[in-house]
Design a protein around this nucleic acid. Structure first.
Lengths: 173, 173
DNA sequence: CATAATTTTCAATAAATACTGAAAATTCAG
DNA sequence: CTGAATTTTCAGTATTTATTGAAAATTATG
């Protein structure tokens, strides 16, 4: 009987493929999302070669995306004794994954926006015309709001899963 | 004296250019982000030709990105009496902008993920092997968490600015 | 209606991004 | 040290995404 094994393989393959397709929407490349998906559903750490084989991708591609995922903190390198090769395993805790993604997005999307808004608000501070005032005000409003969002993200990211859950329950209740 | 006007022009141009560069990170194209930035800081509604001229882009490009922004709800068409051309103006309220972006992201990023997770969880429900159980559990956990996030996003999006502010204050306090 | 203004479409092209594969560099074991 | 295993780099290529510009379609005006 290998019906069960076959069905499982099919379900796993589908998850990896679809998650990869989604990655595009998320602003990360397909391969990175696929590798992440693959490692999330693989109990044992995998080698670069295993990843290459499973996803049918080149060594260079596997390598660079594995490194990128390590840089994000979504996967880690595992060294096995008696093994020279590096193994990779995914962070599997959903709250942890959420925090990592939230932090990275904040760093890449919110912080640069805040910097621009702050600079433009500063540069227009003393332009003493009606248009100048309007522009300055608009920049200030945006800066204030984005700064607020940034602080919120930090706050939530620093929560323990349980605490976040409590807050959420209250919000949804 | 036009020093003030010059400084303002420079600040505005910088904002548009930088916001456009940021757009790339946000998963929207540069032009769309630039047009949005331009309209956010322009008090009077603008025509397609004015946008083309200001950003030095083609008609086709201006047209399709204006339509896309209208579809998002970030800008609206304004008709002026005695004018045949369409004018466009941006939503300027920051909370409103936030909600629109949040909704769109939920629709494009969270909902498809949820659908995949649900499907994979279903398909693995009855695979009666240890590996099958592990996969199913992983899918269930992810589905639950993403579903949760989805509900939270709805909840926050439906809040009035003031209420959201209160919540945030409590969180940050 | 005719026609001029305006909007919309879309094939061709350009630009940005991702991937391959092989060579170079590094690491480790004997 | 030597050489095999492994990791890293990167020039070339492929793929995807964005933009142009001109033609077609639509819409308002006299």
């Amino acid at each position: 009987m290998n019906a069960a094994a076959d069905r499982l393989k099919q379900a796993r393959d589908e998850f990896v493929a679809q998650w990869g397709a989604l990655g595009t929407q998320w602003g990360i490349n397909r391969t990175m999302a696929q590798i992440h998906a693959l490692l999330m559903i693989t109990p044992e750490p995998m080698t670069t070669d295993e990843v290459m084989q499973e996803l049918e991708i080149s060594r260079g591609n596997a390598h660079s995306n594995l490194k990128e995922l390590v840089a994000w903190g979504l996967i880690r390198v595992v060294v096995k004794k008696g093994e020279r090769r590096e193994f990779f395993e995914a962070e599997k805790d959903v709250w942890q994954i959420f925090i990592i993604v939230a932090r990275e997005r904040k760093r890449r999307e919110i912080e640069p926006a805040l910097a621009i808004l702050h600079k433009c608000a500063e540069e227009s501070r003393e332009i003493d015309t009606p248009d100048g005032h309007a522009f300055h005000k608009q920049m200030r409003q945006l800066e204030e709001f984005v700064g607020f969002t940034s602080k919120m993200a930090d706050q939530i990211s620093s929560m323990k899963h349980g605490l976040a859950l409590q807050l959420a329950a209250k919000l949804l209740g």
